[in-house]
């Protein structure tokens, strides 16, 4: 009933698809979280107009399922790029843009919105006295942010960022629907000819489980390192 030959043969292809999954996850996390931190700082400092725009953006991104974001990015961006080309007098062939770019952009926006909420609450959780202490020794606001406030906020945000990242890795599976050959799409493709669905998806499940196990461990490690200064806070 289980086709072991198929499993053995499909392993290399499935493993070969891991990099594209990781490419999406890492680039979306890195770019998205930097944007998210920016949004958090803008909203925390109540920058007029921009702050309101960010609030609407975050609310929209949090309300719309990733799959729909992916579709919107996949169909809207080529038109936007084409129209931009026309406006500068060039005809850009949008079919040469790989689908993974659109997927990454959608995931970046999603991560920016979610991480901004995590950063915002982490920044609020840093004791106000810390900022005052910075001022009392004569630091500027940016020195205080960089040296004292952000490192503490980071330590607070890390567990939630870890959870967000694991969700992101899982979310990349939806890029299948906009034509990215990541792990899930590859599994489907391999399974189709002889309908080896059960084998293909057990393998896929295993790969995701291993990935999330590894990332979970990594985040725990980083968390402990960041938290060393609070190690005995409760003791």
């Amino acid at each position: 009933m289980i086709n072991f030959k198929f499993i053995l043969e499909s392993i290399p292809s499935l493993i070969g698809a891991i990099p594209i999954t990781l490419l999406m996850a890492f680039s979306a996390a890195i770019i998205g979280w930097i944007l998210g931190l920016g949004i958090a700082l803008i909203r925390k400092n109540k920058v007029p107009v921009v702050s309101q725009i960010c609030a609407v953006f975050v609310s929209f991104m949090r309300g719309v399922p990733i799959i729909i974001l992916l579709y919107i990015a996949y169909y809207a961006l080529p038109i936007a790029i084409y129209n931009y080309g026309v406006s500068i007098g060039r005809e850009i062939d949008t079919s040469t843009v790989p689908a993974v770019i659109y997927a990454i952009i959608a995931l970046v926006l999603d991560q920016a919105a979610y991480s901004s909420e995590i950063f915002r609450s982490a920044l609020s959780a840093v004791d106000e006295g810390q900022m005052e202490a910075c001022y009392s020794v004569g630091m500027t606001k940016s020195q205080a942010l960089m040296r004292i406030i952000l490192p503490q906020a980071m330590a607070i945000a890390l567990p939630n960022l870890g959870g967000l990242f694991l969700g992101l890795v899982k979310g990349t599976s939806l890029a299948y629907y906009v034509g990215v050959y990541e792990i899930t799409a590859t599994a489907n493709l391999l399974a189709m000819p002889a309908l080896n669905f059960i084998e293909a998806y057990i393998m896929t499940t295993l790969i995701y489980e291993i990935l999330s196990f590894i990332f979970n461990k990594c985040f725990r490690q980083v968390e402990n390192r960041f938290k060393r200064f609070r190690a005995t806070a409760t003791a």
């Binding site: 004791d127 810390q130 009392s136």
Partner: peptide
């Protein structure tokens, strides 16, 4: 310079 009621040492 200031000395605070709650010390406000940099926690990190």
């Amino acid at each position: 310079a200031m000395v605070f009621q709650n010390y406000n040492l940099f926690q990190n």
